[in-house]
């Protein structure tokens, strides 16, 4: 090793430290990066300094940014999330009821049977569906009593937007939704289930869409599908 080698090596090491610290002027930085591309010894110096100085990283105190930042980031990278979700896409998100909501639904079903006139005891099977929005902003319980062919409806959370109505739909696998009518402003109501669906209650899916006053003018959902639920036998 000649005398000249040492200062050179040292100079590169210090240049690497200055590069890591971001102390080089823009021109020097560019020149250094050009050298880095083809000089693996220089790259090792940069990594060694990065590791050495990283001891100070503990002095960067963790901080919480606004939660919306992650959503912005994801949208910038991967595009806007699907806003017009089809009924069938929604359904895949709502396979079955959660245990907790099933308990609530069960309690409501029990109340329904308790309120039923004594001379018509519920003897046939009972079915329940929790028709709920993903964020729980709208939640409707439906209980079907096979003795009366009636769907007891109880809206437990949410309501129609101003100047809009909620319309209830029944869907069988692979078929277009069939309207069961517009839900009234009252929290509870009773809707007779059309005969064609009575034999396959457990396989039905119920959905609620946002519609103009009086319900969908086309016979198919025209507004957003707000809530979806499948049917469970109690």
């Amino acid at each position: 090793m000649t005398d000249a080698d040492l200062p050179d090596r040292d100079d590169d090491s210090l240049l690497a430290a200055e590069y890591v610290l971001r102390l080089l002027e823009r021109e020097e930085e560019r020149a250094f990066e050009a050298r880095l591309e083809r000089d693996s010894a220089l790259m090792r110096e940069v990594n060694a300094w990065s590791e050495r100085l990283s001891g100070m990283d503990a002095e960067f105190a963790a901080e919480t940014p606004r939660a919306a930042i992650k959503a912005h980031l994801m949208e910038r990278l991967f595009g806007a999330p699907e806003r017009t979700t089809s009924i069938w896409q929604k359904l895949s998100l709502w396979q079955g009821l959660s245990f907790a909501s099933l308990l609530v639904a069960g309690f409501f079903a029990w109340q329904v049977t308790q309120l039923a006139p004594v001379d018509t005891p519920a003897s046939g099977p009972l079915y329940v569906s929790e028709i709920a929005a993903e964020d729980q902003s709208l939640r409707v319980l439906a209980v079907y009593d096979s003795d009366s062919d009636a769907l007891q409806i109880n809206r437990t959370a949410g309501q129609a937007a101003a100047g809009r109505t909620l319309e209830l739909w029944v869907i069988t696998d692979g078929n277009a939704p069939v309207s069961l009518g517009v839900l009234p402003d009252a929290q509870t109501t009773e809707i007779t289930l059309p005969e064609e669906f009575r034999a396959q209650v457990a396989d039905l899916t119920l959905a609620i869409s946002d519609e103009p006053p009086g319900g969908s003018p086309t016979g198919q959902p025209t507004g957003a599908v707000l809530a979806v639920g499948t049917v469970t036998e109690l």
């Binding site: 590791e51 050495r52 100085l53 001891g55 100070m56 503990a58 002095e59 960067f60």
Partner: peptide, 17 residues
Amino acid sequence: GPTPEQVAVASGEAGRI
């Protein structure tokens, strides 16, 4: 942020620098 003393306790590498 944490003081250098707190950092020194926090980890080996940090303690060394």
